[in-house]
Design a protein around this nucleic acid. Structure first.
Lengths: 208, 208, 208, 208
DNA sequence: TATGAATGAGCGTTCATTCAT
DNA sequence: CATGAATGAACGCTCATTCAT
């Protein structure tokens, strides 16, 4: 989706990265539709035209944000999840990672929470595949738990996946909007417990 | 939030209602930001300026949609919920009503699912109170279940509320986007079951 | 090529016509590529956006100028030419009309002379058909003269047509550019004579 | 009109020439206004900035093309014309050379035919003198024919010159635009004959 | 000489909103 | 109440030109 890709690692310290970071700030503050390329450029400390050396269209800023950051996160998830026992432990881990991911960068979290459902066709086409990959990952965690007997054998995996994502998504959205944000990680254990129970897991008294 | 409010109920068949209905169609098709007042006017069969006799700003179209439709739905919910036994039955009923509400009008559902998180301050200020009222309603259902002992005594009501809404929200969003939408009501029982279990309810074998 | 077509005949006295006239002025002065929509709007005494109520794109201004003015001229030509005897009289008449047409409006002439060959695909596609129709008209005049024996029997009609148009075109271009323009009509008789002779006509001593 | 003038004839194979050749290609394809310096640089296989080592402004590319190529052609014309007998032979020769010149390089022909009338003041000022020199050359050929009695004694030399140029110009323009270009030289004899007759020459049956 | 990233003025176009009728 | 032509600020994007390397 990016057009030209100048060195990037040069003296100024990664102009492309600075632009993306500026986009996160500006979009988080005003929303994608409430932000102008001029604002992003100003925040990044570059000229308007410079953005177009790295991103072909305004839309590519948002798309790249999803592809890069969410994509990397998904990559990080796979091995970490596989390191956990199937069932509740793996589910707990996924809850943890999700919350940690968004805790790391609240502005980025804001952008993701607000813009994941953008209806603009170009935006959708650019964002959806990455989001879909994350859904697939959740599906795998659920399915493995069902196969393994950790979760109810008659669990609907797609529905469980949607409940899992929806619950986390709503919690993160609330956190992102809060004036005085609570520590997002504090919901980790109770939320994981609710989900696990909902999936039919028999919970012993061992929180992680 | 609307500026002028002509009679509205006149002979001509409710011009205001026609405009709102047109807004639903157009916003569902192109998204709020991808839609113009001219498109809405054309769809409604009125002149552009006419919209401004009923709604002061473009934003008021979306705001009114939330206030009116979601507001009415909330009103309908209260007595229906109170007619159900506290705990799982009431929870089941809430799931049913939520799904029924969106099933009724898929275009409206699309608008709600996509635009509930709009970051524009005016939009937020107009929409949030209504959404917040719905969250309060959910909270009440959860809290009464906890108080009553139907749900786990240590359930975090805010978290449970978010899981409840998030799960339903995600399911409806998926339904709204599906090319060949499945019957949304089909998820009623399993979703209610997952939520109930997640809340710590002891489920006997009685689906409704 | 025009988008909307508001009344046009209203109180202000034909806004579309005023815009086109402004376009002629501005394009004649700065050339199409050297002119901005803002300049045209200013010259027409309207807002920039108003132009787009009448013309969908900047290109449509130039295209419409050709289609309307040159098109009307061609319509005027047909009956006038048919009223003349085939051969030299008809040829003379065509020379006269061509020169008269451009004499009428020097700014318009300037626009036509300078922009008839625009390579932009949209411009070409819009302009070419009208210009082609004029070439066909010339072809008819030449061909009828050949058939009738007034011109050389072995005259190449396409080549003759090109010489005819090219000669007139060059003369008009020179006139359009001249600081102190000579009376364009003064070349009528000698140019017609040269062309007629070139086409193999036997000229008696009767200028018209 | 060029600003800096590096050696040009160096080892690398004439970078300046390569740039000019690239300009011809690109301008022929997209027109001057539809072409960017970046496109020309890419076609020439140099960096954008390199063009500015040889040409001060975009306009100088087009100007230099006219000055150099048309200028050289005019120089070649003079002796060749003087080698021909005054009157029809010299006129024939001029037609031949004109057609040969454009036949040699169709892309260059395209650029010349389309852009000779550019209204931009800088472009005009740079191009006009060279074109004017060519007109003078034509004038000389016509005038010598008149003085010599080969052409009509009352021939208007300026008008004849314009007809001569206009006719050739139109034919070349048509050839340049044709999808399947006819052999341009094929019009040599008939076009020269038409012009000669138009100028009042008595043609014997000797085509050259 | 040569590079090509960077600049930023400028342009075409859109569209929410107004207002004379 | 209704119209829809008119407005003009605002925006995304381009590209000739510069300059640090």
């Amino acid at each position: 989706m990016t057009r030209a890709e100048p060195q990037g690692g040069g003296r100024v310290g990664g102009k492309e990265a600075r632009i993306l970071q500026a986009a996160v700030s500006v979009f988080a503050e005003n929303g994608y539709h409430g932000s102008s390329m001029a604002q992003v450029a100003a925040e990044a400390g570059v000229a308007t035209g410079t953005i177009y050396l790295y991103f072909g269209r305004k839309q590519d800023l948002l798309i790249t944000l999803f592809q890069r950051n969410l994509g990397e996160y998904i990559e990080r998830c796979r091995p970490a999840l596989n390191a956990e026992a199937v069932g509740v432990p793996r589910l707990r881990r996924m809850v943890s990672m999700h919350l940690e991911f968004f805790t790391e960068d609240r502005a980025l979290a804001s952008v993701f929470q607000i813009h994941a459902r953008e209806p603009d066709p170009v935006l959708r086409a650019g964002i959806q595949p990455t989001v879909a990959a994350y859904f697939d990952l959740i599906s795998e965690v659920v399915q493995s738990g069902v196969d393994n007997g950790a979760f109810a054998h008659d669990l609907d995996p797609r529905l469980a996946r949607d409940m899992f994502f929806g619950a986390l998504d709503e919690v993160v959205t609330r956190w992102v909007r809060a004036q005085h944000p609570f520590p997002l990680m504090s919901v980790r254990a109770p939320l994981a417990a609710m989900l696990a129970r909902g999936f039919g897991a028999q919970l012993s008294g061992d929180p992680s």
